[in-house]
């Protein structure tokens, strides 16, 4: 067991920083409205945040954009695991046959 005090200290600080972001929504949760504009905004969080997370990946290369479109179409008909498998095959094909931007 090899633990450096400064490294352990940094890891603990990272854990607190991460926990702060994850508990905050539960602390403000009871004060959030159950209808109106702010409720509409909160309902959009899943689609909005997931889209933002993957946005840069989609435009990395033509292969990724191609695979993203293929995955979105596949996801309409297949369960998540099937859509992922189709997407990974599409990105490998794309990298073989489509160039860079």
């Amino acid at each position: 067991m090899n633990l450096d005090p400064a490294t352990v200290m940094a890891i603990i600080a990272m854990a607190f920083a991460t926990y702060a972001t994850r508990i905050s929504g539960f602390i403000i949760g009871p004060y959030l409205p159950e209808q109106g504009r702010l409720k509409q905004a909160l309902d959009a969080v899943p689609a909005a945040v997931l889209t933002a997370v993957i946005a840069p990946t989609l435009f990395n290369s033509p292969a990724e954009l191609f695979a993203a479109v293929v995955t979105a179409i596949a996801a309409r008909r297949l369960p998540a695991l099937g859509a992922i498998a189709v997407g990974v095959c599409a990105v490998l094909l794309g990298r073989q046959f489509l160039g860079h931007w």
Partner: peptide, 30 residues
């Protein structure tokens, strides 16, 4: 090394800011 703990914690905090939105969205469902 030695680990700059404040800078690393700040970096973790900024990357994880999205969890504020995620936990707020999940809160009414729990």
């Amino acid at each position: 090394h030695p680990a700059p703990w404040a800078a690393l914690a700040l970096a973790a905090f900024l990357i994880n800011l999205r969890h504020v939105l995620m936990s707020a969205s999940l809160s009414p469902k729990l």
